[in-house]
């Protein structure tokens, strides 16, 4: 079960979906030294943000893992809507901010966050 956030473009008469799921998996990216007995195979619980929509240059939008409310959408450095470095106050704030950024995209290094460019969502 997951949350599907549906976005409808009035101008294009089409819709896209962003999926927020909460899962528990072993995250390969978190294993600094794979197969180390001290950190291998530890399960983490996190939000997984996915979408089949593409950017307006037809590039795919990769899946995003959100382990905690301090993992902000712009390179973990800044919130998209408010230009603040504070952690999200709750899960709703996180979902809304990620959705806003996925739709609108952002320029490189927005708010001096060090993020790379992402184009707006293609409808």
């Amino acid at each position: 079960m997951a949350i599907n956030v549906n976005i409808y473009s009035n101008a294009n008469a089409s819709s896209r979906t962003i999926t927020f799921d909460f899962v528990g998996d072993v995250l390969a990216a978190s294993q600094e030294t794979p197969f180390s007995p001290t950190n291998a195979s530890s399960i983490e619980y996190y939000f997984k943000v996915t979408t089949g929509a593409k950017q307006d240059n037809d590039a795919a939008i990769p899946a995003k893992v959100v382990r905690g409310l301090s993992e902000l959408v712009l390179n973990d450095q800044k919130q998209r809507i408010t230009n603040t470095a504070a952690a999200y106050s709750d899960i709703k704030s996180m979902v809304v901010d990620y959705t806003y950024d996925y739709i609108n995209g952002h320029v490189a290094d927005l708010y001096s966050s060090g993020c790379t460019e992402r184009r707006p969502m293609k409808f």
């Binding site: 079960m1 997951a2 949350i3 599907n4 999926t19 799921d21 899962v23 528990g24 998996d25 399960i43």
Partner: peptide
């Protein structure tokens, strides 16, 4: 509501 699809799950 609980009408959303059960598309993915994980267990430990």
């Amino acid at each position: 509501s609980s009408s959303l699809d059960s598309s993915s799950s994980s267990s430990s």
